[in-house]
Amino acid sequence: MENWLMLTLVGKDRPGIVAEITHALFDLQGNLGEASMTRLGGNFTIMLMVYVPEKKTVVEEKLRPVCDKLKLFFHLDEIEAGLHQHIEPDVRISIHGADQAGIVARATDALNKAGLNILNLESDVGGNTDSPVYVMHIEGVAGKGLEAVDQALQKLARENDVVARMTPIDTMVG
C-alpha cells in the first residue's frame, strides 16, 4: 500500500473549485487517485485520494490558505488505500416514494440483513416542498444471493409504502 491521503472538502458551491484545488495539489507534486464530487443541498462536496510526497502536516499547511480563500471546510486523513481494487456490483436497487423519516435507515438495515454489501449509494429528495419525493439508488454485491435481496425489498415496500425494486447487473466483458 502506498501513502495515500483522503482529502474531504465541503463548502458553498461556486465554479472553479475543483480546478483550484487540483492545481494546488499538483503544485505539491500530488498524484490524484479516485475522486467523487457532487453537490449536496447546494453545497460543493468532494472526497479525493491523493498521494503527495510531503508529510500530511505540510500538505495541510499548503492547502489551508487555498481552502480559506474558497471558504471550504477541509479535512485530511492518512488512509490505507490502493488503486485497482474495484469490486463489481451484481445488483442495482431503486427505492422511491413519499419522503418519510427513517426510510434510509430501514432500507439499508433490511438490505444489510439480506447480505448486501453497498458499493454506491445515491439518495435524493425531489418533488416539491409540499410533497417531497425520496429517491435512492444503490449498487452492491448480494452476499446471500439476489433472492434474499428481492425478498427484503418486497417486505420493505409493503411495510413502508414505497416502490423498491432490484435489477441484476450482469457486466458484459468483451
Binding site: H84, H86, E88, I169, D170, T171, M172, V173, G174
Partner: peptide, 13 residues
C-alpha cells in the same frame, strides 16, 4: 443501458 468491461481496459466497468 447495461454495464460493460473490456479485456483491453482492466479494472474498470
Amino acid at each position: 443501458l447495461g454495464r460493460e468491461g473490456c479485456l483491453s481496459v482492466p479494472d474498470y466497468t
